[in-house]
Design a protein around this nucleic acid. Structure first.
Lengths: 208, 208
DNA sequence: ACCTGAACACCGTTCAAGT
DNA sequence: ACCTGAACACCGTTCAAGT
């Protein structure tokens, strides 16, 4: 049975990770302090260094967990729309936006990358590759079905990601208010704007 | 004639701003230290507080300067393409990307907004409003000329900004490498991808 | 193996005191 | 009016020492 201080004997690492997520969501990842974290968990300021080489290494571990959640969301989203390219593309984009909505701190840390050591996060790079492949496959299927055929699918994949990334960041960074959109419904607006983008790819015969 | 220490008598404020830009470009705005800044300028750690209420206030002043540069660039870009809606839209987007390319630190500080006090930066908000109006006017002109007529111009304006913002951040945040794009030519790629987006808005008769 | 406690070299910010 | 110098309450990180 776990005592209140069970983490002092085996699972301090995961305890620190969980507390780090909570603290970062309160004050922002850029203001996360290892000393404050240690204080909350009830250990000495130096204790985290048995489990993480640095503050950056801890945040990188948080980012790895976050990327796995994103991967699960996008794989699930794609699986729900087999055989329909543009619907699958939209589902992938919506899964990305849903993830950013539910974990804005994770989204910021993972995407801005200035608080983490991306080069050392092999799991993240691997998962990201999987997500790019999913997007590309959806687009190639869509093109077989007539969408934006005069464009290179690789090019469209980057453009689609830029769109969804730009929308997520505008909401997260607080830009939407100035564009006449209510921040409270910003994520819903982002999903609708994604729909407009996907609509621009649709074959001319299906337009209107 | 200005002596080496002339800034000690009248223009320490601007000297601090200039040195702040240089230091932030070296170490990243999030790691800019007021003490290091004071050290470089040759004043006491408390001296900057005569001119800026806080570290955040200083970075906000830097962001105001940066936004004025963006405004000049975009106004110039739009002026070069009168009477052609989509060309004007593209010129506006390219001016935005040029600015982000030439001042990536400025771009990050202005857009992420977590290091500045945007609510207190009335000049920034005003200039941003001007830039949104420019974009909207270009799109309305483009629609009179047949582009994407079934879409609300306000909606297209936000989508266009999300595209260009997403592209600029992907390059700045180092995402392009994983999408098979050379980071060295990333800004050129961004401009080309902007062109693909604008092409998606083009009337069907002009396509191909 | 895992954690403590003291230490080092930093921070942002405040404030009395100098000119 | 503008700047200095000392001070306060913090940081991240290291390292000898404890269990």
């Amino acid at each position: 049975m776990p005592t209140p201080r069970a983490y002092h004997h085996g699972n301090l690492r995961q305890t620190l990770l969980n507390a780090a997520v909570q603290l970062a969501e309160e004050v922002g990842a850029e203001h996360l302090s290892l000393r404050e974290l240690a204080r909350r968990v009830g250990v000495a300021p130096s204790a985290p260094y048995r489990h993480f080489a640095s503050r950056k290494a801890l945040l990188t571990a948080v980012a790895e967990e976050a990327t796995e959640r994103l991967r699960i969301g996008m794989v699930t989203g794609a699986a729900a729309h087999r055989q329909q390219g543009l619907e699958q593309l939209q589902a992938l984009g919506e899964a990305y936006l849903d993830w950013a909505e539910q974990h804005p701190m994770h989204f910021r840390v993972v995407s801005a990358r200035d608080q983490i050591d991306y080069a050392a996060a092999s799991g993240m790079a691997q998962r990201n590759q999987e997500l790019r492949d999913l997007t590309l496959q959806a687009l190639e299927l869509a093109q077989q079905q007539g969408a934006a055929q005069r464009c290179d699918p690789q090019t469209l994949a980057v453009l689609a990601r830029a769109t969804v990334y730009g929308l997520a960041r505008m909401q997260t960074d607080g830009h939407f208010a100035q564009w006449g959109l209510d921040p409270a419904t910003g994520w819903q607006s982002a999903r609708e704007l994604l729909g407009v983008f996907v609509g621009l790819l649709r074959p001319a015969t299906q337009k209107g």
